[in-house]
Design a protein around this nucleic acid. Structure first.
Lengths: 146, 146
DNA sequence: TATTGTTATACTCTATAACTATA
DNA sequence: TATAGTTATAGAGTATAACAATA
């Protein structure tokens, strides 16, 4: 191992910059970062409760309410009481929401491709593979050092 | 390019978990995350003003004052008015501070090594190389897509 | 007048607790 | 009594503005 700064110190500023780079794309589509996170989660599969959705994107249930209000108002998601248990809200993405999600993701990935062009083909492939492997670890696994 | 989530979405939770994993180590040495950031910056080189130090670690100048107070009180840094311009504060790390920095870094790197063991040797090397390459980019370069 | 550090203030984000409705 | 969602409140972290000292 060559001497290096810790991963958090290296990655934290990078992530902050990546988030900043996403803002213009999100603003152009009229959605927030949390709105994009919600669309991304619902694009995979519908969800039965807002609490489950919040967990899926690492947010508090109280934190996504305003986001859901806006997405619903914009017609990007559907949010209806479950007829079998009217306490719960059935959440799903609309065709328009799916289109926004795809469009935003394409723009962000295109932007990221320009950054990844700084890496060699080998580095690039291994980097993406490693990021996906590590991002599959749970917080507990990482904290414990699994 | 295989379809994937965007880098910020993949890396943000990972970084949060890495930061959480650092807390016990930092607590054991009685310093905060910002304290560790300051020690890391001063370990490379002394700095003439607090504003320059804040910039170096991506913080606001008003944000590190309490941190500097604590580090100074603990004898981990030296902080004296520049005799040639008494507005500025000459900042440098002490022997004790350097020792704490080294000790904390060693513990964090050892922890991270356990995580990186999940990657193949090839992936691991390319991942670290890529992270260091990307982390050298300025925020402007990343936002613009350089 | 400009700059460095500091303090005071306000703002944003987030979490906690209290409330409503359903079960 | 317990759960889902919502609202209200409070807390942490951060940025902005005002201030004192020095140049």
């Amino acid at each position: 191992m060559t001497d290096r700064r810790d991963l958090a110190a290296l990655l934290h500023p990078l992530v902050q910059s990546l988030i900043a780079a996403e803002q213009p794309v999100l603003a152009a589509h009229g959605i927030s970062m949390w709105g994009y996170a919600v669309l991304g989660a619902l694009d995979d599969q519908a969800v039965r409760t807002q609490t489950a959705l919040a967990d899926a994107i690492g947010a508090d249930k109280t934190r996504i309410i305003g986001t859901l209000d806006k997405l619903q108002e914009a017609g990007l998601i559907s949010r209806v009481p479950d007829p079998r248990d009217r306490r719960a809200r059935l959440l799903s993405i609309s065709a328009a929401g799916s289109e926004v999600c795809r469009s935003v993701r394409a723009a962000i990935l295109a932007h990221e491709e320009r950054l990844l062009a700084r890496l060699s083909a080998d580095e690039r492939a291994s980097f993406l593979s490693a990021v996906q492997t590590l991002s599959r670890l749970s917080r507990e696994e990482i904290v414990k050092g699994g």
